[in-house]
Amino acid sequence: MTALLRYQAALLIGSHRWLPPVILYAAYLAVGVQTGGPILDSFGFAAAGLLPVAVWLTRICVTNEPPAARSCAAAATGPGRVHLACVLTATGAASLLALLGTAFVALSADPHSSVGRVPVPVPAATGAGLLTALACVLLGTAIGALCNWPVLRSPGAAIPAGLLAALVLSVVSASPANAAVSGLVTGSASGTISTPWLPLAATLPIAAAATAVACALSSRRT
């Protein structure tokens, strides 16, 4: 598995296909997180943007290898493990982005509430921001795993389905990503930090189940 992850990571880095989502996310942060903005609002904003980025990165990783090359690796280790390595590489890349985004917000935002300038402790806020970002990454990975090969094989179905699912799960209040982000944003008014344990606990099994479905299908579709 380590060898597969290393191979997939090298493939992702070497293909340069990570550049568009990373540049877009950097631009999103630069535009949306003004220096000196309220810290909890900024964490919520930074995390929300990670959901579509994680969907995109997952699509990149699971479609990065030509079918013939994938077959060579699949014969050695099994198609399910190859697919798992693809999804995990995407999760890792998106988590790295989450870490960088969280660090950027922690360093640049104003550690006060949005109303009444109540001081907000930076370490606790950063922890909540990071966990919110991870919840968004995991939900994005789940969408990416279910809206691409081998579940949806044609790009004509995969890309609109992925975009739509990312949009719906960002705005619907039942979505754990939305719950985590709105918890931060509503807490920002009064300066209360709501650490998103529950949303994160919900996204973990969702991401695991979605990845398991995709990996199980990878040896049944050609």
């Binding site: 077959s71 699949a74 099994g78 198609p79 040896s219 049944r220 050609t222």
Partner: peptide, 9 residues
């Protein structure tokens, strides 16, 4: 051959 190689189930 793909079945032999374990690429397909």
């Amino acid at each position: 051959l793909r079945l032999f190689a374990g690429i397909d189930r």
